[in-house]
Simulated scan of single mutants.
Amino acid sequence: MAASGAGRPAVRLIVPGNVLHNSGGNAYNAELARGLTDLGVDVRICRIDGNWPVGSEEERRRLAVLLLDGGDAGGSTGSATAVPPVTIVDGLVALGAPRALEEAAAAGRPAWILVHMQLAEYPDLEGRALAAAAGAICASSTAASELRARHSPLRHDSAGVSQTPIHVALPGTSAAPAAAGSNPPHFLAVAALLPNKDQLLLLHALAGIRDLPWTASLVGSDAADPAYAEAVRSAITGLGLGDRVSVEGELRGQALDAEWARADLSLLISQAETYGMVVTESLARGIPVVVRDGTGAVEALAAGSPGTAEAADGGGAPALPGAAVVLGTDPAPLERALRRWLSTPELRLRWREAALAARNRLPGWDVTAGTVLDFIAAAG
């Protein structure tokens, strides 16, 4: 294994070049690289273009060359190392290109896979890629459990012992000031305008509570799926929400901070979500969150939970800083949850207090980076 400052392994992080909006995976990758660098690791970021996941035959071939020869695909930053570094490949690239990983493993250069989201629609490709990997690092326990259930056992030695470890390195959070909120209450949905994020369902739920005072902002890329973004804008007009709901596009810096500051309730109702970093970003600001039950966002909602120290009404599970709502295609359950929150001051206070308590328990990105470093160092 390559050494990097005080015996640290050098790391090459291969990430997709075709995800241009501010996704959770992109944010995780950037924070991981920064955290590893702070720990004294020489990190090179290599961006590889392609129609990932799966990509074309030529794109997969370029990945194979990159894995084998240590090239930078024309997009790396940082200095090269004399000894091949440990390679970590974003799952969006790796899980659909098993042959490239198999060739790297056969050459004695097995790569790690950083799994932000599974490739469930191609289980055979996913299983082969995982079997060829040095190991998988999942961004949530939800993702790890699903991979183990779908592919266990992945690979065994002659004694029948599994040889492909699946680890978990939860996303960290950055410290942020507590949100001041607004009057009337302000809903915030931070997510790219994409069908999976289900902003259309959210808008129909909001249309059902127009008799109550509130405002809402949709913050996220409107360029990732222009047709869906246009459908969202049309729904806002058609539902008569033009004076209540704004589409802000992708925001950064002070503009995004201003949206966080005026939020009272965060909403992430994705149809599928491995974790949902926006949930912990909300909690870091003392903002409670409503998520879709059955997704990884439920795990994120409990990230700052004290365990059993704080019991919910009636005892049992600890009070959560928000709620997980069972949702399909009917907006009525979400409408009921939002109406109850708006109409019940005691509930709003309880969720807010739980969110403020959670923000003090959330791990930082230094913990994430240290966890990943421990995994790859132990395997060396």
Rank of each mutant, 00 (worst) to 15 (best):
G253A: 03
V65P: 06
I48H: 00
L203N: 00
G220R: 02
S141Y: 05
R62K: 11
H204Y: 13
D293E: 14
S305W: 00
G25P: 13
L154D: 07
G364D: 05
G5Y: 07
H204A: 13
R285E: 11
S305F: 00
M277S: 11
A3C: 08
A284C: 00
L206V: 14
A319Y: 08
S305I: 03
A255S: 10
D313Y: 11
E31P: 12
I48T: 01
L338S: 05
T295A: 00
A378K: 01
E58A: 14
I88V: 11
R339P: 03
A191S: 15
R34Y: 10
P213R: 01
P185S: 14
I269D: 08
A143D: 05
V279I: 11
L301E: 02
S217I: 08
A100E: 00
D222K: 12
S182W: 00
V168D: 12
S266Y: 06
A357H: 03
Y228N: 02
S140G: 04
T142L: 04
A378H: 04
T87H: 03
R252W: 09
S145N: 08
I209D: 14
P53C: 11
G208C: 09
L32C: 15
S4N: 10
G75K: 09
H151W: 03
A178G: 13
G240Q: 06
A231E: 14
L170P: 13
R99S: 06
N18M: 09
T308W: 13
R60E: 05
A180H: 14
A120R: 09
A303F: 08
A369Y: 01
R336T: 05
A82P: 12
T368F: 01
L239G: 02
A332I: 04
L301F: 03
V326K: 13
I376H: 03
E126C: 05
R361D: 02
R339M: 03
I45Q: 15
G127S: 12
L251M: 07
L194P: 07
M117Y: 04
L193G: 12
W365L: 01
E103N: 03
H21I: 14
A369H: 01
V65G: 08
L373C: 02
A192T: 15
I137R: 00
R12D: 11
A216M: 14
L241V: 09
G370C: 02
N29P: 12
L203T: 07
A107F: 00
L342G: 03
V219W: 01
Y122S: 11
A131D: 00
G35N: 14
L268D: 07
L114P: 02
G71L: 06
G276N: 09
